[in-house]
Amino acid sequence: MKCIVCVKQVPDTSGVVAVKEDGTMDRSKMPTITNHDDLAAVEAALELKDATGCEVVVVSMGPPPAEGMLRELLAMGADRAVLISGREFGGSDTYATSQIIAGAIHKIGVEPDDIVLCGRQAIDGDTAQVGPQIAEKLHLPQVSYAAEIKVEGNSVTVKRLLEDGYMMLKVNTPCLITCVKELNQPRYMSVPGIFECYQKPLEIFDYEALKDEPLIDPDTIGLKGSPTNVYKSFSPPVKGAGMMLEGADKATVDQLVGILDGKHLI
């Protein structure tokens, strides 16, 4: 059994968002972090490894510096890493990206008892589309928004976190699960893990390595193969601090009505 975990290095949007003249994000000017939901997926895989001894393969598509992130995941306990990186893949939207990642996962090989794990969505694109699209392209059953995962043999029970409650689903392996950050608390890298992480295997899949994969079609990857394009990105205007009124008495309600009335909102 193995877990293949898809991970994305994203700009740290908790700081200032740098935007290029063409409206796309200037990633080089922003510090990078590992996407939170993806870290939850890595932790879920590592917990399965702790319990079953399964292999954990981390996969990321990104520019060469994403190797640093993959090394950190190896230092957390992943066994090997694959970096999908090539000029031909640049500018891909979710359709093209899932096409490429699905091709890479196919090349790695999905065995009957394997699980592919993804984060729900990345904090930069916020689409939540790549995981489900990978599942479709690999013809795997998918369960999204996992807040709890239990594996018993080939059966996986997933508790899905929905807006107004939970949904329990059972699925057989091989399958793809997208995880929310509420799933777990990702572990730290360990000291021995850090000293070992540069000795662990990290393969680079460039276009040459993937071009014979049936899913990789030059017309459906990269910027020119992407049906969607980013029109504009910008930082939303900063909202002023809100006002808090506390109390369940008439005076507070009158005060609230007075404020709303004064602003001609009611």
Binding site: R71, E72, A75
Partner: peptide, 14 residues
């Protein structure tokens, strides 16, 4: 070294 940089980050987070 790259390992020391990574350790620093881990120690700091911890």
């Amino acid at each position: 070294t790259r390992e020391q940089e990574m350790l620093r980050k881990m120690y700091r987070d911890f």
